[in-house]
């Protein structure tokens, strides 16, 4: 095990590199929000948040918050020039009507056919779904960022999800702490892996077969501290 897995910031950085210039993007609350920090220079990206804002910017300085101006995670935001407000039905028309280019979510499990489980782990506690089930059906590209395995080492990329589903066949790309994997025709297709890791090592930590098309790229990210 000569490799070092990517930090969350490094996973977010890698996902950010694939955001196209001119894209409308929704970043799920929590970890995916970090992607905005690594938006590549020169790319013009407009961020959508479910509660009804398009074109929001960075968080305000502490003490400068206006709590009527928040994102879906209830965090204070600021507006970029050209921002707009709209009610919830219009906001989800943007989602379900297929107007977003990219949605990025977290995951408990991703199945090789693109099924996603990301909203509850079992039947205990208080369930909460928010906009996740909408987002997975709305964007042209639905990507997941996640650690490759759970805290106790179990694969998160699996043949079949065992946790309650968020959506069927919805995920198109997975950025993990070890690899970049596309989902095509019901298979995981390995695009990039850590260069210091062998294919067999990666396969051993993955709960379904990794297919290879063309070549496997090196997953190289900057040291982000």
């Amino acid at each position: 095990m000569a490799y070092t897995k990517l930090s969350n910031a490094q996973i977010a950085w890698r996902a950010a590199q694939d955001i196209e210039d001119g894209a409308y993007v929704n970043l799920g609350i929590g970890f995916p929000e970090m992607i905005a920090k690594f938006q590549p220079e020169g790319r013009d990206v407009t961020y959508h948040t479910e509660n009804g804002v398009l074109g929001f910017g960075k968080a305000p300085a502490p003490g400068e918050e206006d709590w009527d101006l928040i994102n879906a995670g209830k965090k204070a935001i600021t507006l970029n020039p050209g921002a707009s407000f709209f009610h919830h039905a219009d906001s989800f028309a943007m989602v379900r009507g297929g107007h977003l280019d990219l949605a990025v979510l977290g995951a408990y499990q991703i199945a090789q056919n693109g099924d996603l489980a990301n909203w509850r782990v079992g039947t205990k506690g208080v369930p909460a779904v928010g906009g996740a089930m909408d987002l997975v059906h709305g964007a042209k590209r639905v990507a997941v960022i996640t650690d490759h395995v759970t805290k106790d080492g179990k694969p998160k990329l699996v043949e079949t999800c065992t946790f309650p589903l968020t959506g069927l066949g919805c995920v198109t790309q997975v950025y993990t702490s070890l690899a970049v994997v596309d989902i095509e025709d019901g298979h995981f297709v390995l695009r990039e892996k850590l260069p210091d890791m062998s294919f067999d090592e990666l396969q051993a930590l993955t709960g379904a077969t990794l297919h290879v098309k063309d070549s496997i790229g090196d997953l190289i990210v900057p040291d982000l501290g």
Binding site: E50, H87, H88, A89, S91, F92, V95, R96, V126, P127, A128, V129, G130, G131, A132, M133, D134, G138
Partner: peptide, 12 residues
């Protein structure tokens, strides 16, 4: 009691 509804479905 709780009726859990996806956010966009709730709005629609």
């Amino acid at each position: 009691e709780l009726e859990l509804v996806p956010q966009g479905t709730l709005a629609e």
